[in-house]
């Protein structure tokens, strides 16, 4: 099965636009999730989703231009995502220790009253 997928000759009727469309939709869903969710961890998950969307677009472009730089970039995206996850989660742990809640709204002392 994998071999079949890997050896696919062409896109057929599916073109770059389809992938970009998928990527866009995923990105937007991630964005909406980031904006609506109040749980800090889920918010970070949503950022990961946006990374994911970007990665799909990168890979699609790479395929179309026969240029592997796109795939290499996805490696860097993975790197950054991993680093971000580590730091963000340690921050979340730190914040959770202070207020015993994961709600982002617990941290709003800097607002204009």
């Amino acid at each position: 099965m994998m071999h079949l997928l890997a050896q696919t000759d062409s896109f057929g009727s599916v073109e770059l636009g389809h992938y970009l469309m998928t990527s866009s939709v995923l990105f937007v869903i991630g964005l909406i999730g980031f904006l609506t969710r109040r749980n800090m961890i889920v918010m970070f998950l949503c950022t990961e989703l946006m990374f994911q969307a970007a990665a799909i677009a990168m890979i699609a472009f790479s395929r179309f231009h026969h240029d592997l730089s796109g795939q290499v970039f996805v490696i860097f995206i993975l790197t950054i995502a991993a680093a971000e996850a580590a730091l963000a989660l340690s921050l979340v742990v730190l914040l959770y220790r202070r207020k015993e809640t994961l709600s982002a709204e617990a941290w709003s002392e800097l607002r204009e009253t």
Binding site: R38, S108, E109, L110
Partner: peptide
């Protein structure tokens, strides 16, 4: 515009986006 500065992260994110 003061009410926009409500200190809630998502609000800021909405404005930014």
């Amino acid at each position: 515009f003061q009410p926009l500065q409500n200190g809630v992260l998502q609000s800021y994110a909405v404005h930014m986006a």
